[in-house]
Simulated scan of single mutants.
Amino acid sequence: MAYKISDACIQCGACESTCPVGAISQGDTQFVIDAGSCIDCGACAASCPVSAISPE
C-alpha cells in the first residue's frame, strides 16, 4: 500500500528529501508520491509538519 499526499500539503519539501527511493516529486499544486516506486516505509509521513501524508 503506497502513501498519498493530501490537499493539506504546504509544499515545504520535507517529504521529498526523506524518501529513500525518490518516489516524491513536486506536482502542479503540491508534492506527489509515485505509487509504483513507494516502498511503504512511512519516512515521508513522519517528516510532514502538517500531517498531510497517510497510507492510501
Rank of each mutant, 00 (worst) to 15 (best):
M1S: 10
M1E: 11
Y3S: 02
K4M: 08
K4P: 00
K4Q: 08
K4T: 13
I5Q: 04
S6F: 10
S6L: 09
S6Y: 09
D7C: 00
D7Y: 03
A8V: 03
C9A: 00
C9P: 14
I10S: 00
I10N: 02
C12M: 02
C12N: 03
A14Q: 04
A14E: 00
C15F: 03
C15S: 07
C15I: 03
E16I: 14
E16P: 01
E16M: 15
S17N: 09
S17K: 12
S17Y: 08
T18M: 14
T18H: 11
C19D: 14
P20W: 12
P20I: 12
V21W: 06
V21P: 08
I24R: 01
I24E: 06
S25W: 10
S25H: 14
S25A: 15
Q26D: 09
G27S: 06
F31Y: 15
F31H: 15
F31A: 06
V32I: 15
V32A: 08
V32L: 14
I33F: 02
I33T: 02
I33R: 01
D34Y: 11
D34A: 15
D34P: 10
A35W: 07
G36W: 08
S37N: 05
S37M: 14
S37H: 00
I39D: 09
I39A: 06
I39H: 05
D40C: 13
A43Y: 11
A43I: 04
A43M: 14
C44R: 03
A45E: 15
A46M: 10
A46R: 13
S47I: 02
S47H: 05
C48V: 01
C48L: 01
P49K: 06
P49F: 07
P49G: 04
V50Q: 11
S51D: 15
S54A: 13
S54G: 03
S54Q: 07
P55G: 01
P55R: 06
P55M: 07
E56R: 09
